[in-house]
Amino acid sequence: MNQSFQNKNTQMRIRSIYSTLSDKERLMADFILEHPEKIIHGTINEIAEELNLADSTVFRFTKKLSYKGFQDLKISLATESVNAMKDVHEKVSKSDDEKTILEKVFCSNIKTLQDTLEVIDDIAFARAVDTILHANKIELFGFGGSNVIAMDGYHKFIRTGLTVSAQTDSHMQLISASQLTEGDVAVLISHTGHSKDILEILETVKEQQVATICITGFTQSPLSQGSDISLYTLSEETDFRSEALASRIAQLSILDALYVNVMASLDDKGQASLQHVRKAIQKKRL
């Protein structure tokens, strides 16, 4: 593993390679993410027995995470746990004044962006850019708060000169999805990846052989598992802001990065389209 990987905490290491793991490795990965305290206070034999895995499988997985062994993993998780307790003091409290809350919200957003950048799969992201560039039509889907993100994506990609669309009404989204065909791409946005509405869209477009790109926060969600390309966000919930709300800054940034990459690839064609947009908007200004 490279130095960049070794500089990540355990959660980041797992998330950054999760898509490449075998079923047994994912079992171990999920256990570490959900029960780090059991790793800290348990033995390799106890963990292996609880997961019905061989000791050697557990050991090999710790090596895959670039630790020297199980004990090294335990020490790392314990250190991260102490640091997490320190971070609690940086969360917003009722006694904070306006300036303090302002600073904490900005710091939280910065952390969300940094953490998301760490877990983005470079290969998956490059595939997403290429898929968008070669699509006959790009359509963005999202419901509730995710629809705001989808519409922002539409607001960006309409400037590329590519054929792009997005709808706000849930019925219109489903109708529009039914009209997509092979060669088109659907960009599906959902923090949890469990929304019934977004999964209906996924089912509809997959029946028509439409390429799918999802932006979500959960690797094991039905949306992530069913999409051709998955781009993940990583955010934390606080007392005054849900994890879903915190993730939106990362979702917006992923769409920004996709847009800029597409524009860079389009080169003169993209710039010509952007100039047309600017010229048209100029007429609306006094």
Rank of each mutant, 00 (worst) to 15 (best):
L117R: 15
L245W: 00
L33V: 05
F125D: 08
K137S: 08
G270I: 01
T100A: 14
T116Q: 15
F5Y: 09
I229D: 00
L27A: 09
T192E: 12
A84M: 09
S224T: 04
T168C: 09
Y232H: 13
E139P: 07
V260T: 06
M28I: 15
M12A: 14
R285T: 08
Q209P: 00
S235W: 00
D97W: 09
K284G: 11
D256H: 01
K283H: 12
I254G: 03
Q208S: 15
K137A: 09
D72E: 04
E90P: 00
G217D: 10
I47S: 06
Q114W: 13
K156W: 00
H41K: 07
G217K: 03
E236W: 11
G153F: 07
D268C: 14
G69S: 10
K283F: 02
D256M: 10
L162H: 11
S273D: 11
D169G: 06
S19Y: 10
I189C: 00
D169N: 10
L162Y: 06
D30N: 15
L245F: 13
D268V: 07
D72Q: 08
I215K: 02
I254S: 04
E98H: 02
L255P: 00
Q173N: 09
H171G: 12
Q173P: 02
Q208L: 08
S146Q: 03
R26Q: 10
R13A: 02
A264Y: 07
K94S: 09
K86V: 05
